[in-house]
Amino acid sequence: MTEQTPPEQVYLTPTPVRIWHWLNALGIVTLCVTGIQIRFPEYANIFGTYKAAIRLHDIAGITVSISFLLWIFYYLVVARNIAKVYVPTLADIKSGLFQQAFFYFFNYFLGKDNPHTATPDNKFNAIQKVTYFMTMFLLIPLVVVSGLLLMNIAPLRAWIIAIGGIKFLVDAHYLLACSFFAFLCVHVYMATLGHTPFAHFRQMWTGWEKMEHTG
């Protein structure tokens, strides 16, 4: 396989990760849109009836939970490089974040090169690592757990009371959802900052990334 492809391409995203990613993206977008109707039914009637929004929200939530398991399974059991790929190093935190931010918000406008080059074991720059790490290890698990609790209030009532009550749970779920919405805006936009606007999207679809400096 590798021999037949031009050397300036690199296989960054294996198939299971891509399947997870697009299932997850579809799921999260559905959750956000249905969520708007669920919290603000007087202002947003997007799916006809309230229960249609609820049903769709439940299905999307389960999709996201299952695809999250797929993601964990792949990175922990198959690829076993989750620490390398996702966990920010001390250098990432100390200097990487600043360098990368300086590039995005200054050098980028001057037309300078991205200081980070993606390789399969080091595919994220410091900013990506930190945000993806937070998203995948904090936001997703929290939103999945709070969502599952909310889908089973009657049988799990005592637990819900023990963690601070259903209002706390609902409001945490809502704020997490808003964070996802915000993440999504930034994430989709940042994904257009490749050497062409669609380079990263193509990569996320096919797995192959054209190396920037060869282009």
Binding site: R39, F40, Y50, K167, D171, L175, C178, F181, A182, F183
Partner: peptide, 24 residues
């Protein structure tokens, strides 16, 4: 321990959430 979705939502919290989205 009492919340009815869509009905007993808190306004301040709704606004905080919208601000998070707006900052994104």
């Amino acid at each position: 321990d009492f919340y009815m979705t869509g009905f007993t939502r808190n306004k301040t919290l709704s606004i905080i959430g919208i601000l998070i989205v707006a900052s994104g």
